[in-house]
Design a protein around this nucleic acid. Structure first.
Lengths: 110, 110
DNA sequence: CTCCATACTTACAAAAAGGTTAGTACCCTA
DNA sequence: TAGGGTACTAACCTTTTTGTAAGTATGGAG
């Protein structure tokens, strides 16, 4: 729930602390090519609960992976986008996609 | 605890189901270049509990990412190694390491 | 015949993650 | 002045994950 303080130098652990869990990478990949408001993210990730979405966005923001832009309007308008550090998680998403596709291949031919 | 049945086609989800959690990728990266017996893995990952190590190895084995080799000796001798499918998780470990290193850079210059 | 080493199991408990539901604040519009 | 749309909070509960501690099986060495 709070800002992550990194454990002593296992890069896997570091990455898991920042990006682990069911939703963070899904959120990041949803922001890959457009900044979106909360309501749009909700629509893009239909099965996430509102609580988790907001909570995870908050953590990602606190860790400088996502930036929150408040337009100060009423009704509220807030948009989220990846920071430069956050964009660097995208190759990881790519690796995961590739692993998944390889895996399904490999399993079928078994 | 049981063999994973894949959810309908989100590659991130697929990969998380197979490799998510605190230990699986650590185990996989420990087996990257040598097949090891349980006791050796325990030494290599000192802070994993025996139960988790065995449990996660079992799941990885059931999902064809790790192979269990039983030498049928007494006292028991069992070794674990990555399958071809398991080796394909290594680039993912690489991406995670790179992300972590980038991240620490980016954070420092902030 | 007792003990040892190794892999593994089981029962239980604690902690973390995720989900549900109801509510708040804000100003605008009707 | 009542209601609507949007982002967000809070209290509570369930489920999942992880950890702890004790115990099992095996055959050979002493």
């Amino acid at each position: 729930m709070e800002k992550v303080e990194l454990s002593p130098r296992c890069p896997i652990r570091t990455t898991l602390e920042l990006l682990g869990g069911k939703w963070r990478l899904v959120i990041i990949s949803s922001l890959a090519d457009q900044q979106l408001r909360l309501s749009a993210l909700k629509r893009k990730i239909p099965d996430i609960s509102e609580k988790m979405l907001i909570q995870e966005l908050k953590i990602l923001t606190e860790n400088y992976l996502v930036e929150r832009i408040n337009f100060g309007e009423v009704p509220p308008r807030v948009e989220y986008r990846l920071t430069e550090a956050g964009k660097k998680a995208l190759p990881l998403v790519g690796s995961m996609a590739e692993f998944a596709s390889n895996y399904e291949q490999d399993i079928r031919s078994l």
